[in-house]
């Protein structure tokens, strides 16, 4: 019986082990914060496993031993055992607490000149702002954060509505975004690559669909990206794209979304100036393709029920034009 159960159990263990690596895993550290946390995680897990094993052994011994009359000196022995166990418990907890405290302090240590990025949580997307540091203009984007590899980053976290929590497990620990209270997160991304983050505090109907991408790049590529993002949207090439822009400006789209360089100057929804340069759509729900853009505009409430994007009625040719124009905003 036991041997027959073994293969599925082994399979399950293997399957869960695959969760330990990848682009969203605290056990696959790619940043200073998560590396420190990983260095804490394994010793703590080992210590707790040992404690659990010891407790189970004592429990098993107590259950299995034969009932005998208790000799007089046994009371003294068990008193010593209780004291020893208490001491061991205090010792283990103290060591783990101190280790945890030191790790937390180490993580939040700030360097002299970090790259500051503001991240604001909305139901259910992330607004990302690169503040204007040298007079070239701030960059506002959404659901995607680009970072230079090897430079310390300070994220300034805030929330527009309810409590969200910023969590990119591969980079660092989670940090709550609380309305009316600004939090910070400091870390260094150590290897280039694309990582996934996820809101880690239940924030309403579409909490599960509030993801973001972290794009860690070599510094030169990051600077090039930032320079491109500072530009206004390119003027539409061709009649179809021109139509798309005009419809976007005249219909309710432009009342909520901003596209710099056009008449659309809304501030309620995500900034779409370089919309199609992002990897995903609607906070990680859809891939950034023209078809997905059209599907999202055609019926946002079926794809992500409860989100604040209304279904704006567009005729088929209008939808074609708007989605083509949005897909051209690179």
């Amino acid at each position: 019986m036991a041997t027959r159960r073994l293969p599925p159990l082994a399979l399950l263990a293997c399957a869960s082990a695959t969760g330990c690596s990848g682009w969203q895993s605290a056990l696959d550290a790619r940043g200073s914060g998560s590396r420190a946390l990983e260095a804490l995680f394994w010793p703590v897990t080992a210590a707790l496993a040992l404690v659990w094993l010891a407790v189970m052994l004592v429990l098993a011994a107590a259950l299995l031993r034969r009932r005998r009359p208790v000799p007089a000196q046994a009371a003294r022995r068990s008193e010593i055992a209780v004291w020893a166990a208490t001491l061991a418990t205090v010792l283990v907890i103290t060591v783990l607490t101190v280790a945890s405290h030191l790790t937390t302090r180490h993580i939040s240590r700030a360097a002299a000149d970090p790259l500051v990025i503001q991240v604001r949580g909305y139901q259910w997307w992330w607004q990302v702002t690169y503040p204007d540091s040298d007079g070239t203009g701030a960059v506002v984007t959404a659901n995607e954060i680009h970072l230079p590899v090897g430079r310390q980053v300070r994220l300034e976290l805030s929330s527009a509505d309810v409590i969200h929590s910023f969590w990119v497990p591969s980079l660092t620990g989670k940090q709550d975004m609380i309305p009316g209270r600004d939090n910070q997160l400091t870390f260094v991304a150590e290897t280039p690559g694309i990582l996934r983050g996820q809101c880690a505090e239940f924030c309403g109907l579409q909490h599960a669909h509030m993801a973001l991408l972290m794009v860690v790049e070599p510094p030169a590529e990051f600077e090039a990206w930032l320079a491109a993002q500072r530009q206004e949207a390119a003027p539409p090439a061709g009649p179809m794209l021109r139509d798309g822009q005009r419809i976007f400006e005249q219909r309710p789209c432009g009342a909520c979304h901003r596209v710099r360089g056009t008449a659309a100057a809304g501030e309620i929804g995500p900034d779409l100036t370089h919309f199609a340069s992002r990897g995903t759509l609607a906070a990680g729900v859809l891939p950034m393709t023209r078809g997905a853009i059209a599907a999202w505009i055609a019926d946002p409430q079926t794809i992500k029920p409860g989100n604040n994007m209304p279904l704006v009625p567009l005729a088929p040719d209008e939808l074609q034009a708007v989605s083509a124009w949005l897909a051209s905003l690179r």
Partner: peptide, 8 residues
């Protein structure tokens, strides 16, 4: 009229 949908 051009900033909100009917249901809004």
């Amino acid at each position: 009229r051009n900033r909100l949908t009917n249901d809004q």
